[in-house]
Design a protein around this nucleic acid. Sequence first.
DNA 1: TTGAAAGCGCTAACAC
DNA 2: GTGTTAGCGCTTTCAA
Lengths: 344, 344
Amino acid sequence: MNKKYTIKDIAEIAGVSKGTVDRVLHKRGKVSKTALEKVNTVLDRIDYRPNLIARNLKNTKIFNICVLLPNPKIDIYWEGCIDGINDAIEEFISFNIAVTIYFFNPTNTNSFIENNEEILKTSPDAVLIAPLFYKEAVEIVKNYNALGIISVTFNNYLKSNAIKSFVGQDLFQSGKVAGRLLEILVKKGLIAILHIDEDYENAIYVQEKEKGFRAYFNQVNNTNYTIKTCSLQHPNFKRSFYEFIEAHPNLAGIFVTTSKAFQVAEITSKLDKKIALVGYDLLKSNLNYLKSFDIDFLIHQNPKRQAYLGVVHLIEYFIFDKEIPTKKLLPIDIINSENANNYI
Amino acid sequence: MNKKYTIKDIAEIAGVSKGTVDRVLHKRGKVSKTALEKVNTVLDRIDYRPNLIARNLKNTKIFNICVLLPNPKIDIYWEGCIDGINDAIEEFISFNIAVTIYFFNPTNTNSFIENNEEILKTSPDAVLIAPLFYKEAVEIVKNYNALGIISVTFNNYLKSNAIKSFVGQDLFQSGKVAGRLLEILVKKGLIAILHIDEDYENAIYVQEKEKGFRAYFNQVNNTNYTIKTCSLQHPNFKRSFYEFIEAHPNLAGIFVTTSKAFQVAEITSKLDKKIALVGYDLLKSNLNYLKSFDIDFLIHQNPKRQAYLGVVHLIEYFIFDKEIPTKKLLPIDIINSENANNYI
DNA sequence: TTGAAAGCGCTAACAC
DNA sequence: GTGTTAGCGCTTTCAA
């Protein structure tokens, strides 16, 4: 009933040779009308599912995929990506795929550009990039595209039609998630949106989160709350933050738009009053404060899965001709002290 | 540098034939000491990764996997499983795998037993079961085991060494997650644990959730809270629940241990005071109340992924010789009104 | 105990 | 245009 048909079967039924069937299937032309019809009649009647596996046995071309992301030694957030990429490599080890990882310094635009030049030299078939530097990335991606190199971005969205696909979260929506969480945590008072732009610039992305956060509170339209944005830079962070606290005695909750919630918790955990705290990312230091309830919720951006999916999409495109989704939005995981362990 | 070695390569280097290498690799015996040594020396020196794909080209045996779960028409919770199973089938369509789904009536123990008998008749290589009926499942699984049929359970844990693997959530821990959520939602007063055991018996599993929930509150040890358990049966649910509310004016939060939180929300949403509500599962009716904020949080048990993984583990075991993890615990996803869409 | 050879499903080169 | 054939990496005969 559910017989699996092979090219050989089709050839026999249609009364032609395997080669002809193959030519029809792949639209390689050089097939007479009569042969084409004979084959198509058979194909219409049966459910032919090519064995994608056997297809690739033959293939000798090695696909070259390059991944470029910030050096995890400089920003530990990216560490999981390496595992994700390695998982993908392992999973497709039987195919002719070469994946190479490049790291750039996220505090240094030139490092980003230089690494892309390095990548170009290897004439890759595709690149997967975390495009932290917006302007530069747009140019670089345009260049890849001109050279026929497929580019896919992850973690940070980039508007450009030179990009084939994006894997990551909807940051606006994740701001709304944080909004809902803080609404529950705080009944009234001031809620601060804290941008802790440590060393480097990813302003566009934290702004997206802020917009979502504010959109949520506009929508609930509750006069109990005041929302205020505050941008803090690294060197003076502690002092500036203390000043902020003193200047705002009604401060009741904080939304940290970067992964640095632990820096805030370090301070708020020592205050007399409880300040609700929602942040991002399962860094060790964040998790410690989550377990001690000084951070109430973390939003998990799942960099590991982002990188994994980015690579897998490319591999499956090359070896299985599978379409790459233009936009793959990952779930916005809410983490508290009790479910954290399941995500790491 | 990273050359991929094939059996042919190894044979040439070792100065033996492909057949001999194969015999060594698969420990089929019938290899002389000298040949064995020659091959092993080569294997020690290189990193041989067999092409698992090519391996299965030859294989003509069709592996027969049967899945048994409650009929989604009777309990809609299970609906997602079908998609998950179909995803797995699709993913491995090129291999010789036959997956058949069987449904039992979750309100009827006999239906469970009968379906297992049906399955037995097809002499499967493995079964994946949602063992809702504990006692009966233990017997059935023992029987499968005796017949050399691999059994894997999902969604509901069963203690039995006749079972090869379990895929699902840690229900105790998910109770703790709910505990933490209600602690945040409710500052003081009575928190009710509601078991709505509709038509059928899954008492063991909801008890596990209750234990975790209580464990959490014992651990925070806050005298502001009283925890009380309440079991309600379907026919009189509404009346009994109203009585419960009236008898407990300090009721501030409810933890529903089944997927029937919507039945509670239907009532609490019409009360004057806000009662915090945490439940399970992304049923349509639950989601509606989540969006209207009458349910505060849902815990997602991800039946789709459970079934998917259960099947995939088996398939990969058969075709890739991959080990099946004894216990695969899925993350305990916390869902609120804002991140729900990403999970469905 | 061993090597040679056929064949899994598909592709691509090559005659005709 | 079309059929034949070799070969991808591996397994499994089968003859030696």
